[in-house]
Nucleic acid binder design. Structure first.
Lengths: 254, 254
DNA sequence: CGTTGTGAAATGATTCACAGCT
DNA sequence: AGCTGTGAATCATTTCACAACG
C-alpha cells in the first residue's frame, strides 16, 4: 500500500487529497519535488550509484537482463549494507516486492526518472584547458543525457580551434550562447581566480546549476545548486587516509 | 556483512586513553601520533579546504600575510559556520588563541603537516586518456607535494608518446615502475571495465592508496584507502538538485 | 527459505551557548 | 570588545531487528 507515514520517511503524497500517484512508479515531477525534500543528501549520491550499477549490469547482460535484483546484491556490489539500500530505494516509493526483490527494469526506470537521466540536459563548458577538454571529450556524458552545447575560453590561441569536434568560442559570448541554447548547467573549468566571475555570469545568464572544478568555494547571489569537484582536495584526503593507515573506500566530492 | 564495516569513518584509535590533549605539538613533531583521535570523515574534507583557503590568502597577500585568522573569517570564505571551523581545528590540538584567533602561519603549517602536504607523494597515473592527461598536466599538484612519476597506457598508439613532457609507458611495466619509484599512490584513469584489475595490480605492487576516476566501486583484497571521483555521478547529483530547485552548495566525490 | 519495508535504537555530525582568555 | 574550545543539545543518518510477504 502506498502508505503515508506519520513521521518522516517515505514517499509522495504530503497532503490528503490528490492521489496522482495511482499509477505504479510513474510519479510526476511535482511528486519528485516533494519527495526530494525528504531525501537525505547522502542518499542522493547513492541513488546515482545504484543506477550506475544497474546500467552496467544491463549492458553486460545484453538481452538477458535479470528479472529482479535484490538489495543484498546491490549492496555487495557497491560496498554498502543491504539495509542501507532498502532504505534508499524505499524513498522512491513502494517499488520492491517482499521475498522477490526489485523489478530490474522497473527500478532502472524509476532511478532514471528520479535522477533526471531521461531528460536532456544542456551544458556549457567554460575553460578549454585540460579539464575542460577532458569533460567535452567524455562520451559517456551524452549517454546519461548531458549534452555539451558550447565550450568557451579566453585564450585567443585556443579560441577558434576545435576540441572534440567543437568550436571553442570566446568567453564574451557566454551569455548570448547560454540564452540561445537554453543551457541549464555550466561546467566551470577555469582557473580559481576566474571561477567566481564566470559563475556569476553563467547564473545571471540563466543557468540553473554549476559543476565547479576550480579549487574555490563558489557563491552566487541568485542561489543555484553548486557541486564542486576538487582534484587536489581529493588527493589530500587520500593522502591523509594513507598516513592514518585507514582502510576503506570513500566517495569524494570537493 | 560479517567482519567488515562498509566503512565511512576512520576509527583508528591507537591510544584509548586520551587525557585532554595536554600535549601540543607546536613543533614539527609527529603530527598524527598526537592526533590519535577519531576524526569525522567530513572533517577531513574540510581540513583540506582550510588549507586551500589559507594558501590562497597567503599567495594573494604576498609578504604581508596577516598575523592571525579567525574561525569566523574562514567560515565565511568557505560557506561554513564558525563553530564548525573551531570544532575541526580543535582536532589538530590546542592551536588557537582565545580572543585572538589562529596564528596564520602556524595554522598553515599545522594543516600542511596533518594533510601531508609537506611530504613528497609519488604517484603513478594509469590511463593516458583525457582524464589521465589532464591530471598529469595539472601543475598545481606538484605544488601540493603530489609528484607524478609515471604514466601508463595500453594503447600502442599512445605508448611511447609524450604527455606533458612525460613518456607514456606500457601498462605491463606498472609493477616494475611502482617498485622502482616507490610510488605510494595510483591514480586510476582507465575505463570502468579495466579499473578493478589495475587497482588490484597497483596495490599488489605496493601502492598504498588509490584515486579512482572510473565509474565503478573498487575493492581490493589488501585494503587501502580509495577515493573515487566520478564525473557522471557528480553531474547526476547536480541535475537532481536542480530539479528540486534546491539551493545550496555541495561538495562531491564519487 | 529469501526478501522488502520500517519502526526503533544506535551512531554520527553539527549547532548552540557560554566559560574563560586576550 | 572579539575570540577559542567544548560540553550539551539538536539534528541527521545508519544500523538493527523483525513482521509480513512470496
Amino acid at each position: 500500500m502506498p502508505g503515508r507515514t506519520p513521521d518522516d520517511h517515505l514517499d509522495l503524497d504530503p497532503d490528503p487529497g490528490n492521489g496522482d500517484s495511482a499509477f505504479v512508479g510513474e510519479a510526476g515531477i511535482d511528486a519528485l519535488a516533494e519527495l526530494g525534500r525528504r531525501i537525505p543528501r547522502p542518499a542522493i549520491r547513492r541513488l546515482s550509484l545504484y543506477l550506475r550499477e544497474i546500467d552496467a549490469r544491463a549492458e553486460e547482460a545484453g538481452a538477458a537482463v535479470p528479472r529482479t535484483i535484490s538489495s543484498r546484491v546491490l549492496a555487495k556490489a557497491l560496498g554498502l549494507t543491504d539495509a542501507q539500500v532498502r532504505k534508499d530505494l524505499a524513498l522512491l516509493g513502494q517499488i520492491g516486492q517482499s521475498g522477490v526483490g526489485y523489478g530490474f527494469e522497473e527500478l532502472q526506470g524509476r532511478l532514471r526518472e528520479v535522477l533526471g537521466s531521461d531528460l536532456r540536459w544542456t551544458c556549457v563548458v567554460v575553460g578549454a584547458g585540460n579539464i575542460g577538454r577532458a569533460v567535452v571529450a567524455y562520451a559517456r556524458l551524452a549517454d546519461r543525457g548531458f549534452h555539451v552545447a558550447d565550450i568557451f575560453d579566453t585564450d585567443p590561441r585556443v579560441v577558434g580551434t576545435l576540441v572534440a569536434g567543437r568550436l571553442v568560442r570566446p568567453v564574451d559570448e557566454l551569455e548570448a550562447r547560454i540564452a540561445a541554447t537554453s543551457a541549464e548547467l555550466a561546467l566551470i573549468a577555469v582557473p580559481a581566480d576566474a571561477a567566481r566571475d564566470i559563475a556569476r555570469r553563467a547564473v545571471d545568464a540563466g543557468v540553473r546549476g554549476l559543476l565547479n572544478f576550480a579549487p574555490v568555494h563558489l557563491e552566487v547571489e541568485t542561489r543555484v545548486p553548486i557541486v564542486t569537484v576538487d582534484l587536489t582536495s581529493a588527493l589530500q584526503q587520500l593522502a591523509f587516509l594513507v598516513r592514518l593507515d585507514a582502510t576503506g573506500t570513500s566517495d569524494s566530492f570537493e
